[in-house]
Amino acid sequence: MKLPPFEYACPATLDEAIALLASRDGDAKAISGGQSLMPILAFRLASPSLLVDLKKLKGLDQIKIDASGITLGAKVSWRQIEDDKRLATAHPLLQEMISHVAHYQIRNRGTVGGSIAHADPAAEMPGFSVTCDAKIVVKGSSGERIIPAGEFFEGPLMTVLEADELITEIRLPPWPAARRWGMLEFARRRGDFAMGGVAVFYDLDAQGRAVDAHVGVIGAGSIPHRVPGAEAAINGTTVDETAILAAAKAAAAGVEPLTDIHASAAYRRNLISVLLERALRAAVAR
């Protein structure tokens, strides 16, 4: 399983990188951590003529936190998120979600931008970005675009990213300290892609009722997505057992999971429902 032939370039600036990507008529691929791309090359499932290494590009590896929210540079690694003590309060859901990503060695090298560009429907980062109303900032030959995460993913391993575009940042809205949240995923083994996963958060109004509930799912269809039915079942309630069960039921109805060798659609549908039920209980108790 040796990699297919390709040329390699390691540009010093973003503009050069974009120019290189644009130079091959869609046949060039960006590589950063390489943790998603390298296995694909090893199986020769892709055979780009040029790899453009983002290693020397500056300024893309920062986590910025201010009143307007959180900005993750595309080259921020899982490990950086895990180790950033500010995020424990600035975005606890991000840290929780990232704790499920792959394994130690991959977490040292894999990047948020790479995961989003790869767009595995069972991966955490795409699901997280959709759940949290993230904005994906991309730059290409024709300039910069800011794409809502909910419009970024088109299918398994498919996104709206053009061949000459690079993700530069992921922007997240601020996270209120009092926000209630829960996140659970179920995988056959720790670190595996999820058979199903659920992230949920909501805020409480003055009467203790849930507002602005967000429910996102991974591994439950061809792209990560929110589940409006489940969100509606939470909003306006005190998130009591009745609401939790209603939301769980709505989640089961609001997903179209696939059957594959690992599980049937029926199993996954049930799983999403169970995970949301449990995640909501955790949110209430938090």
């Binding site: 179920f186 058979m195 690992h262 599980a263 049937s264 029926a266 199993y267 049930n270």
Partner: peptide
């Protein structure tokens, strides 16, 4: 004895 089989 996979989870989907036991669940079923």
């Amino acid at each position: 004895l996979s989870p989907p089989r036991i669940w079923k």
